[in-house]
């Protein structure tokens, strides 16, 4: 019996190895044609969906060595407008959610990111990030860190004020609204470090991803889309910063502007000037070590203070 079984087993093992090797695209072996590579289409992330750019445009993304990686959607100003509409629509629900709930959702994003770490390490390496593993670790840690802040920021940024009258006087921080964010050219850690502080306090955002390396941003969008984050809280656009950012800066339904990723001084100044029209809060671009402890600055930059006077009942 054992002699009769052996060839059969050997055949079965061979079939398995064949199936495994067949999964990777490559040249045919003469008997079967080569398997087609399934290339991913990178799109925008607006209102919880992944639409193509309204303009139909795309641009090629290359690796650090100049090899073609994929085409990314090149967002137009109408996509930016749609994203602002989606963010505004999501604002009521997200800002009204309990801080505890927002913290849970952010922690869930960290979990999902952790479960995709291999994919992110590969994508970051392709985009020329040397220490991809450390970057992914730091990004997950950053999300967990900000998740913890959700129900603590009010204690730090708010206060009970002593007043000369029979009143309780309490100041509490409230989200400012829709924040337009230009993400820095640090594909994952920079992106997470600008999104998390904006949304943890209850704002919603429209993010323009790094123009050079937008692919990890869209992969992050897939993480966000599967993390209990309501659609529209984070909207990610890919394309030209110089083209889209000024429209977001001038948009009257945007409440604040984070220019972290604007490298062109002229564009930054133009954005800040356009933002003055409706007194948007503006966070200027600054040299930042994204691995360092971020502090609360990025959260408090996008908060308003509400002060309530309440009779003590004397």
């Amino acid at each position: 019996m054992s002699k009769a079984e052996k060839p059969g087993r050997a055949r079965a093992t061979k079939q398995v190895t064949e199936q495994v090797t067949e999964q990777a695209p490559g040249p045919g072996d003469g008997r079967r044609p080569a398997r087609l590579a399934v290339r991913k289409t990178y799109k925008l992330y607006i209102g919880g969906a992944f639409p193509r750019s309204e303009s139909g445009r795309s641009y090629p993304v290359t690796s650090s060595s100049g090899d073609f990686l994929a085409n990314a959607a090149k967002a137009s100003r109408k996509d930016a407008r749609d994203a602002v509409t989606a963010a505004r629509k999501a604002f009521g629900g997200w800002s009204g959610a309990t801080a505890y709930n927002r913290g849970q959702v952010l922690y869930r994003v960290a979990e999902m990111l952790e479960s995709r770490r291999a994919q992110f390490i590969a994508e970051l390496a392709e985009s020329g990030t040397k220490n991809a593993r450390e970057v992914v670790d730091a990004s997950v840690d950053r999300l967990v860190w900000y998740a913890g802040w959700s129900d603590k920021i009010a204690a730090v940024a708010g206060s009970a004020n002593p007043v000369a009258g029979p009143y309780f006087n309490i100041s509490s921080p409230e989200p400012t609204g829709v924040v337009a964010v230009v993400a820095p050219d640090k594909p994952l850690l920079g992106l997470v470090s600008v999104i998390a502080p904006v949304i943890v306090t209850g704002n919603t955002c429209v993010v323009i991803a790094s123009e050079r390396a937008p692919l990890p941003a869209i992969t992050l969008a897939e993480v966000l889309a599967t993390s209990d984050l309501p659609g529209g809280v984070v909207n990610i656009l890919t394309g030209s910063v110089a083209e889209i950012a000024p429209h977001l800066a001038a948009h009257m339904d945007v409440n604040a502007l984070d220019l972290a990723g604007v490298t062109d001084g002229a564009v930054a100044v133009a954005c800040e000037q356009a933002a003055a029209e409706n007194l948007k809060r503006v966070l200027r671009p600054a040299e930042t070590d994204w691995f360092a402890d971020p502090g609360t600055g990025r959260m408090t930059a996008f908060l308003e203070t509400k002060t309530v006077w309440h009779p003590t009942g004397v």
């Binding site: 602002v84 429209h247 001038a250 948009h251 009257m252 339904d253 945007v254 356009a274 029209e277 409706n278």
Partner: peptide, 9 residues
Amino acid sequence: TGRYAGPDY
């Protein structure tokens, strides 16, 4: 104006 308007106004 060239600026997208907002319902707040």
